[in-house]
Design a protein around this nucleic acid. Structure first.
Lengths: 143, 143
DNA sequence: ATTAATTGTAAGGCATGCCTAACTATTTGT
DNA sequence: ACAAATAGTTAGGCATGCCTTACAATTAAT
């Protein structure tokens, strides 16, 4: 009962991102962001609150708990690292990189994730190697 | 209605793999392989048959159609390529590589997949670069 | 303060994908 | 050929996660 579904991880991630620019988030903002109904968001928020990942008080808005923040940051780190790897190392465009990171972040294990992170950093230090690779892919990387 | 769920892709993949060693596959073999009930397999096979990806005739066994084979091979290629990338380039052990490939193969887009494939081949030609990277990870790669 | 607009909740539905239990059909062994 | 074992199906359940519709609560505007 401790593990979050891909769906709940997404909610948490969005809440955390929205909280960076405003004090408290409203359910309707999430509904708009995810393009789903207010009712579905309401249900999901109840589940997150039950797991003590957020504090949800209806019209008063949503606040994240320390546990929730930790979990959200883990997902966000996966998201960012994967996006960077797809863009900077593989040379793919941002849209494709984001879309794929969004899905893979929920299924990748910590071991593989951290290894990709380290590898990405290693590649960052070896620009020549990556530039040579990217030369064959001018098409997709900058459309 | 054309897109396969991760679950149905898994069934198709296993059917294809089992067909390599025997003429026709039985539902019970899949149930054992996936560790799920015969009833669940039965349902899934009906769905695959309805989509014309397999020919299913109960006790007579399962046969794959050309369309089904094509789809299965796509998934299998993703699976193999990802596993190889995780093992040979990132230096992770086979179990972790397989587990992650198994999940990512269902959510990764073709663009990202083909780029990883090309990148993996590029790395294969530049052993030094990869060997230097792997030197820091003796632990996980060969336990 | 009262109405209107916005936001949130509850109820009932649908699809996926798994389960068990009970039943049917087929195959195998003697 | 017939009983036993094996394989497959059906029915009813459960959880997730989405939907719509209708209703309730809150906030904003006049």
């Amino acid at each position: 009962m401790n593990n979050l579904s891909a769906s709940l991880e997404d909610y948490l991630e969005i809440i955390c991102n929205l909280l960076e620019t405003s004090q408290s988030v409203k359910a309707v903002e999430i509904a708009k962001k995810l393009n789903i109904s207010r009712a579905s968001v309401s249900e999901a928020l109840m589940k997150l609150a039950e797991k003590d990942l957020i504090i949800y008080e209806g019209h008063k808005g949503i606040t994240i708990t320390p546990t929730g923040l930790k979990k959200a940051q883990e997902v966000i780190l996966k998201h960012k690292t994967l996006t960077t790897f797809f863009e900077n190392t593989l040379g793919l465009n941002n849209t494709i990189a984001e879309e794929n990171a969004c899905k893979i972040e929920h299924v990748i294990s910590d071991e593989v994730f951290f290894r990709i992170k380290t590898f990405q950093e290693y590649c960052e230090k070896n620009k020549n190697f990556i530039e040579d690779f990217k030369k064959g892919h001018k098409n997709t990387s900058h459309e």
